[in-house]
Amino acid sequence: MGLFDRMMDMFTIVANEGHGSVAVVFLIGILFGGIIQYTRVDKFEKIAGFAMLKDTTVPKMLFLAIGIAAIGLFFEVKLGYASYHIKPMILSGLIVGGILFGASMAILGKCPGTGPISIAEGRIDVLVGAIGGILGAYVFTKYYDSFFEPLMGKSYGKETLLNTMGNDASWSVFVFGIVLILIAIIIPNRELLDEADLSQLSEEERAELESNRRFEIIT
């Protein structure tokens, strides 16, 4: 199959798979891209800034989203409108993968979800990162059986709070969700701003920002 046929094949797979129509999946993507761009969490200053502990927008938004979604999803599943899809505990894969992922995220200042949104706003350095990523995926696919699958190690099952807490399972989900929401609120609100962020503000807003110590401004 040629490149064009294989791209068309992608739409056919989605259309026949039963995980939402092509239009719905595309819409989920639009909303995903829109939220990430509108909150500016695709910016290098937000993600690398978090790695340097100078910007906390990403963890605050992430923990809040997880906390709300954990509680919401519990009800969705109870009412029969959704089901759980758990990833296995492949311990060495999670640890080795997590170390590589965290270090790379600090350096690139993007993750696989926010990277494409950055490319869509004209970031050429991230496009170069994406080419590296495609090459990484090629190497992973090519040496999956011989190197990467053995490295990932054995799976310790698909455990969750819900299936290990017995009678307290429901409560544990609420406690988990509420604790995450509280963490999101408690994390000090710090931001690393550059000229591009400031240029969109009025004079008064800018003066107010510059006198506020929760903002660090890059000059």
Binding site: H85, L94, G97, M105, P112, A130, G132, M152
Partner: peptide
Amino acid sequence: AGFFLIIGARLAGGCTSGHFLSGMSQTA
């Protein structure tokens, strides 16, 4: 970093979206 970002995500079976957002919401 792009190269190792994807190797890392594939070793772990997910990324910020699949593991953090979706996985932790399921208390996995």
